[in-house]
């Protein structure tokens, strides 16, 4: 197998979205714990530095969320103590913890998503469904660094003509508005060159096809199939109520029986596979390197 980073972006996108989505929309403590552990493992293997920086933050969010909910939600059958004439309940605390887990794990999934789904990969994923929008995105993405550089040039030019003052905040705001205004004219007026260049290369003459660097190989198909199979079992288990969990009035986690167990197992695979695949690849490379 290959890691999600090396896989076809479509497979990687599907996998991450399903892993994050199922946990996000099923309030089940076991699923959330699996999701949190899986996403943290993936981020840690993928980019240890980012993980070291981000994970404490997510943990703090988790704690904050767990503490805030009991202050607002007062239903629940097991009061712990009374604060400002309102009971603070155990159930509300559990609910807050579940929410915190959900938020922390989805942030963690999206942090990894950000790492591996670069803009060209996202354009690839949506390109077949939305060719025109992705073309606009691609053009806009090309323009942004250009505009950033041009803004610097404009600022220098205006400054050296003595037309850009920066003694105080108002002057500064006016000056930047001036730079931005020059930039807007420049971009709009010269945009016609880009449009002409598109027309000259036959844009709009017929049905467009799409070229992509990424290929969809057998292993990508396998990844997609596995991912869909795991996800559908987990979703089926959730939909059937086997993974049901009630927080109020009293915390009760459905045992779920065989279907529940299978559902948990499938989701566990779904959540841990990205990290494990990445890890396996790291190991393989280390082995290869030592042999070279």
């Amino acid at each position: 197998m290959i890691s999600l980073r090396e896989a076809n972006p479509f497979a990687a996108f599907l996998w991450l979205m399903l892993a994050a989505g199922i946990a996000m929309f099923c309030l089940n403590p076991v699923l959330l714990a699996l999701s949190l552990a899986g996403s943290a493992l993936y981020l840690a293997v993928r980019n240890p530095l980012a993980a070291r920086r981000a994970l404490p933050l997510y943990l703090a969010l988790f704690a904050l969320s767990a503490l805030i909910n009991p202050l607002f939600a007062h239903n629940g059958a097991t009061p712990l103590f009374v604060l400002n004439h309102n009971p603070v309940t155990l159930e509300a605390l559990f609910y807050g913890m579940a929410m915190g887990g959900m938020i922390a794990s989805s942030l963690c999934w999206f942090r990894s998503f950000q790492e591996i789904m670069t803009s060209d990969k996202l354009l690839y994923v949506f390109g077949s469904a939305l060719p025109k929008l992705t073309l606009i995105l691609s053009i806009a993405l090309r323009y942004i660094p250009l505009l950033r550089d041009q803004a610097k040039r404009v600022r220098d030019a205006q400054r050296a003509l003595g037309l850009f003052r920066e003694e105080n905040l108002i002057d500064r705001l006016r000056g930047e508005a001036r730079v931005f205004s020059v930039l807007v004219t420049w971009a709009l007026e010269n945009g016609i060159i880009t449009a002409d260049s598109m027309a000259a290369r036959g844009y709009g003459t017929g049905r467009r096809t799409r070229y992509a660097l990424f290929r969809f190989r057998g292993r990508d198909a396998a990844l997609c199939m596995i991912c869909l199979a795991l996800a559908s079992v987990a979703i089926a288990a959730a939909a059937s109520g086997a993974l049901r969990c009630d927080f109020y009035p009293r915390f009760r986690l459905n045992g779920g029986g065989a279907l529940g167990a299978v559902g948990y197992a499938c989701y566990a695979l779904l959540a841990f596979a990205p990290g494990i695949l990445e890890w396996e690849e790291n190991l393989r490379w280390r082995a290869l390197r030592s042999r070279i």
Partner: peptide
């Protein structure tokens, strides 16, 4: 996606999009 959009209209939208994002960088000092 259903409609046909000419190159110039497409560019106009792309440029305005890029400009509104780039505006964030231009005004980053404030």
């Amino acid at each position: 996606e259903r409609r046909k959009t000419g190159a110039r209209r497409l560019i106009l939208v792309a440029v305005m999009t890029a400009l509104s994002v780039a505006g964030r960088f231009v005004f980053s000092a404030i």
